[in-house]
């Protein structure tokens, strides 16, 4: 199957995928539809295609990540692309090479798509202005993580058939979460109600201007939510203590068996992982019937295949127009 033969259901037109904030509902649906198509023709991502044959996808990770990098690599290979991994340590940057130098070096090697993770918001945006290759944001600091947002949405949609009208609670460290921001933008665009819930120190007050409801009491909101997305406590991004103890956090915001029993019967439990068992959720919940944590991992592969394909098509369109 050729790249041009991949059916695209709606508008796309983006050279880069930097965030979900500026995407329309139609564009989001284009990605979701394509992921669903890949789900069907590859039997859940297990069969290889060759639509990206001859293309090179570079993983440019300035921040440690095993899961996301592996997922992107696998997605690229399932589509027949060659992949190169480039893990830039901060020490090499301090020697004077800017991250833009690094990226340009990689592009000079003939890379078509760059998957970038960086600890600073906007780093992939700056890269995209200095590269001809398409740039996929794989997480920029505490700003956005668009493919994670998309895979969360895809997972909910797969189990509920729709997004509009659902109520989704994002629970935990909202302040330091790129996953929260991408979820908010994507879910709002598709018509969901979003509640952010967590310790007041980890919810910036201006967040309501993104159109979300703020709650500090998980038990109050649980009966009316269709899905909880349990964000990992970002110990490494926090400067100082934002709550008194992990025990208190787990007591107030941790998802446990008691809370599951008080929630709606068909509650969906998502967690972007890696999870801190006993903090955001207990093993009973993580391994229980409501949990979609492993489905998320599989769906992540499909979403990344869809995003890589759309950007590769856009790149081809631009090259042909030149």
């Amino acid at each position: 199957m050729l790249l041009t033969e991949i059916p695209v259901s709606g508008p796309w037109g983006e050279r880069h995928l930097l965030g979900l904030e500026h995407l329309t509902a139609d564009q989001l649906n284009t990605v979701l539809d394509l992921a669903r198509h890949f789900d069907e023709i590859t039997l859940g991502g297990s069969q290889r295609l060759d639509v990206l044959k001859g293309l090179v996808v570079a993983n440019l990770f300035f921040e440690n990540s095993t899961r996301t990098r592996t997922s992107f690599s696998l997605a690229a290979r399932r589509l027949g692309a060659d992949t190169v991994d480039f893990t830039a340590s901060t020490s090499s940057l301090s020697k004077g090479e800017t991250f833009i130098d690094t990226a340009q070096t990689i592009e000079a090697m003939g890379v078509d798509l760059v998957v970038c993770r960086h600890r600073t918001p906007g780093a992939p945006h700056l890269l995209s202005r200095n590269l001809k290759a398409g740039v996929l944001n794989a997480g920029d600091g505490t700003h956005e993580h668009p493919t994670q947002g998309l895979l969360d949405i895809y997972t909910i949609m797969k189990h509920r058939g729709r997004i509009a009208g659902l109520t989704v609670a994002l629970v935990g460290d909202i302040r330091h979460s790129r996953v929260a921001r991408s979820n908010i933008h994507g879910l709002k665009a598709l018509g969901a109600e979003v509640i952010v819930c967590g310790p007041a120190t980890l919810i910036p007050s201006d967040i309501v201007r993104l159109g979300v409801e703020v709650a500090y009491n998980l038990d109050d909101i649980l009966p009316r939510v269709d899905c909880v997305n349990l964000l990992r406590v970002q110990f490494e991004r926090q400067r100082g203590a934002f709550f008194p103890s992990i025990a208190e956090y787990a007591h107030l915001f941790g998802m446990n068996g008691d809370r599951i029993r008080r929630a709606r019967e068909n509650l969906l439990v998502l967690a972007p992982g890696p999870i801190n068992r006993g903090v955001e959720l207990t093993p009973e919940v993580a391994d229980g019937p409501h949990s979609l944590i492993l489905n998320q991992v599989t769906n992540g592969l499909l979403i990344r295949m869809a995003c890589l394909t759309l950007l590769a098509q856009e790149r081809r369109n631009i090259q042909e127009a030149c």
Partner: peptide, 18 residues
């Protein structure tokens, strides 16, 4: 102010900066 990058307000929240 330590570690901050920009004015604390909606824009910083939206962009994810301290």
């Amino acid at each position: 102010s330590d570690g901050g990058v920009m004015h604390e307000g909606f824009e910083a929240t939206r962009l994810g900066f301290r």
